[in-house]
Design a protein around this nucleic acid. Structure first.
Lengths: 215, 215
DNA sequence: TGATCAATCAGTCTGGAGGCGGAGGCAGAA
DNA sequence: TTCTGCCTCCGCCTCCAGACTGATTGATCA
């Protein structure tokens, strides 16, 4: 009997998963949790074989919970189940020690199969996620802004707010000539032709001063 | 017997909802769909009393589907069920004619209650969403871009891509002078001082050409 | 019919943006 | 020590952006 815990802040997702597993012989749901903290407590108490874990939850995310659980209970196999295959959190999740990675679009047989394989020590990575990983490893996923210097980053964040060179000069306490130099370097490093494109780039790549990022 | 259709691109959410409703007498799930287009076809064929509709789906979003359904079948009550209460899509959904608005954190009794109330003509708006609406109505929350003309919108979307006036001129088949006029009007209507700020505004307010929006 | 507004285009003018070349100070690596 | 990279700053020059003023056409509406 494979003992499974279900972690998701959306009750209807939990019920969906549980209904997937209800008819399956050999799998037993031993508990559910609606946050990362609850998940840690539940797992350490019940010590299930498998945890089905949502990545994005309102109270503490699944990555921290994954890390926390594996620290105290390394034998546990954690299957991440999330909504979006292109989420940036994919890689931190893998790094945190997640065993398998599935999408919420998965159907019952896929979930059951993933659980059974996990219990036999075989991971399942959803194909889109796997492709993303492959492409990242292939290209080493070097983002154009990776080789911006620290100061150029500061300037780019100002550009991303729509500030003019003069405003940036005042903000960073440097001369306007210096700002222009940085801007030129930024444009060339990002491969864009003016500050507007740089601002768009920054906003679409999360290079922003301090705004909440929702997932 | 209340006839219900379930629309969500995540099968486990659909199964979760259906498992909520399975034991409930007086409610019958007459079908499920995994995209907006499918939903429209399903609803027009089966004509359910209630549709439980996810807002964010990979193939066509729930808002368009809601609008489409109500155009041909105005008697249908559409209950939006989504993950995030602070999503900007809340208001378009209400405008599109969504009847009730719930979160995926809702439990079985809340879902059942919402369906029964909807069938009696009584909407249910989740409290966080309601609060957001209240605050928006209080502040009247009229977005600056609400009084852009259609053409100005086209130009703004180009600016949001980082295009120059010349490029916009080529893209929209209008003179560069015309582009400049539009740009000036846009800047003044948005209350910003240059195209970079306009681009930032557009990107942060989802005024973008055709990019997938994840949520 | 006259008024209004969106969309188009024109001319003129100013200022900022950005390219190009050059340079000094400074810290860490070879 | 020399070299390299980053941060800082300077001058010069060109060009686009955007403001301002004004005009025409066509659709809608009172």
């Amino acid at each position: 009997m494979i003992r499974v815990a279900v972690v998701d802040d959306h009750e209807m997702v939990r019920k969906g998963i549980i209904s997937y597993l209800a008819t399956e012989t050999g799998i037993e749901v031993i508990g559910e949790a609606c946050s990362g903290n609850e998940a840690v407590l539940l797992v350490l108490k019940e010590r299930p074989d498998i945890v089905l874990m949502d990545l994005l939850m309102e109270n503490g995310n699944g990555i921290e919970a994954t890390r926390e659980i594996l620290k105290s209970y390394p034998g546990c196999k954690i299957i991440i189940i999330t909504s979006y295959y292109d989420d940036e959190q994919v890689f931190p999740a893998i790094e945190a020690g997640a065993f398998s990675y599935m999408l919420k679009t998965a159907n019952a047989s896929e979930v059951v199969a993933a659980i059974k394989k996990a219990s036999q020590g075989e991971p399942v990575i959803e194909s889109k996620v796997a492709n993303k990983m492959v492409s990242r490893f292939r290209a080493q996923e070097k983002k154009p802004h990776d080789d911006l210097t620290e100061r150029e980053f500061d300037v780019l964040m100002c550009i991303a707010e729509g500030m003019t060179n003069q405003e940036i000069s005042d903000e960073l306490f440097i001369g306007i000539k210096t700002v222009k130099t940085h801007v030129s370097n930024i444009l060339s490093k990002l491969g864009v032709s003016d500050r507007t494109q740089a601002a768009v780039y920054a906003n679409r790549n999360g290079i922003i001063k301090s705004r909440d990022k929702k997932g």
